[in-house]
Amino acid sequence: MALKLSLRPEEKLVINGAVIANGDRRANLIVHNKASILREKDIMQQEEANTPARRIYFPIMLMYMDPSSSSQYYDEFVLRMTEFMGAVSTPEVLDMCVEVSKAVMDRNYYKALVQCKKVLKFEADRLNLSYSDE
């Protein structure tokens, strides 16, 4: 099944490690095979991994973008997830963390990122931080 992406003017995305920038008009792309794709809004720079949940998201993102080196980032993910789960007592959030961990163990990194966004939202709400998933 093909993936259709609608890009806004000037929007960037990463496909299998290549940074693609859209021009000055809206564009549609259709990807016909499996590829690691992240939109600009989903890409986190290392210096942005500055909260506990963001420190979980970042190594998952790296595993997704570079699956051949995923073992290099896995230990950091485990450490950060363990710290986070030890500090949180909300059952719903702990369930989210379990779902993220399951997806990572299954090497379904995109699903893990989607689940982790729920954890990011929880953290932002709890710490009164701004959070946007748009």
Rank of each mutant, 00 (worst) to 15 (best):
F84T: 09
L29H: 09
L79T: 14
L13N: 06
L29E: 07
L129N: 04
Y110E: 09
E47G: 01
A2G: 10
K111A: 13
N128C: 10
R8A: 14
P91Q: 02
R107E: 15
G86H: 11
F77N: 04
V119G: 01
H32N: 15
L94W: 03
A35C: 07
N128R: 13
V31S: 05
L79W: 07
N128W: 08
E134F: 12
M65T: 04
A112G: 09
G17K: 00
D106F: 09
Q45G: 00
S101G: 12
D75T: 12
F77G: 06
F122H: 06
N33C: 10
P91N: 04
L5P: 10
R26T: 13
S130T: 13
G86T: 10
C116S: 14
L38E: 01
Y64V: 03
V19W: 06
A53W: 00
I43E: 00
R25E: 15
M61W: 07
Y110M: 06
R25Y: 11
Y73W: 07
K118Q: 10
R39E: 02
N33W: 06
R8N: 14
R107W: 02
Q45S: 13
S70I: 02
A53H: 04
V88E: 07
D66I: 13
L5F: 12
T90E: 12
R8Y: 07
K4W: 10
I56Q: 02
P67R: 02
S6E: 15
R107C: 08
E48Q: 14
G17N: 00
N22R: 06
E123A: 02
A103C: 12
D133F: 10
I20T: 09
M85S: 15
S71Y: 10
G17R: 00
A87V: 03
V78L: 08
F84K: 06
E134M: 09
R39N: 07
A124Y: 03
I30Q: 15
A49Y: 03
I56L: 02
I56Y: 00
I20Y: 09
M44T: 06
N22M: 10
N108E: 13
S69I: 02
